[in-house]
Design a protein around this nucleic acid. Sequence first.
DNA 1: ACGGTCGGTAAGTCTTAACTTACGGTAAGT
DNA 2: ACTTACCGTAAGTTAAGACTTACCGACCGT
Lengths: 104, 104
Amino acid sequence: MAYVDALTALADPTRRTVFETLRAGPRSVGDLARGLPVSRPAVSQHLRVLKHAGLVRERRVGTRNFYSVDGEGLAELRDYFDRFWEEALAGFKEAAEREEGEDG
Amino acid sequence: MAYVDALTALADPTRRTVFETLRAGPRSVGDLARGLPVSRPAVSQHLRVLKHAGLVRERRVGTRNFYSVDGEGLAELRDYFDRFWEEALAGFKEAAEREEGEDG
DNA sequence: ACGGTCGGTAAGTCTTAACTTACGGTAAGT
DNA sequence: ACTTACCGTAAGTTAAGACTTACCGACCGT
C-alpha cells in the first residue's frame, strides 16, 4: 500500500516541484530550498514525506544531504496505474456486454 | 496540467475508494454512497472533484446519475509517470557520468 | 577550540478541505 | 396532483497539514 503514501505525497504542489526537480539528478536540501518560495525547514519536511513514501533516497556527504529519485516508489505508481487501466478496461467491456444482454 | 488535478484528487482516501470502485463498471451516486462511511452529499462532492480532474464521466438515466472511469485522465497519469521514469533515468545516468568525470 | 555552514526537529499559527445538515429541483409512480 | 426517490448545492464546523521561527546537533575550516 505504498502507492497510497506516494499519491498523498504528490498532491502538494511544493512537494511535487521538489520531486520533479530531482528528475535532473541529486540535489542537496539547501540547493532545493534556494529555488523555492518556502523556507529550508519546509523543504526538509517535504523530503521526509517523500522519503516515507518511497519516492526519494538520501545520501549524506559531509554536512550536506543529497536527495535523489527512488525508482522503487516510482515503479509502484506506474504499476498501480497500469493495473488500474487494465481492470477498468475489463470493467468497461463487461458493462457493455451486460447492457447488450439487457436491451440488445 | 490536468495531471495536477488528478494527483490532488487521488490523494483523498474516500475519493480514491470511489475511483477504484468504478473500475468494475458504472455506479450511481447513491449506490456508491451505500458502500461508504460518509454521506451521499459527500460522495457527490468527491465525484465533482474527480470529474473536474478528468478521471470520471457522468451519464444521467432518469433521476439517477451513473459515474464511470474516464480513460483520458487515467491515460494522462500513466503518461506523466512514464515520462517521469524516462527523465529520471536520464538524469541518473548523467549524474553517474559526471561523478565519474570528477574523481574517476 | 572556535566560527560557519548544513540540515533535521519542535512548537505554534493559519489556511485548506472533508464532512455534516438543510434545502431545492427533477424525474418516475400512483 | 401528490408522493417518493435520486441527486446537486449552500452554509457552517472541524480536523489536517503546510508553513514559520527557534533551536540543536553534526561536520569542516582555520
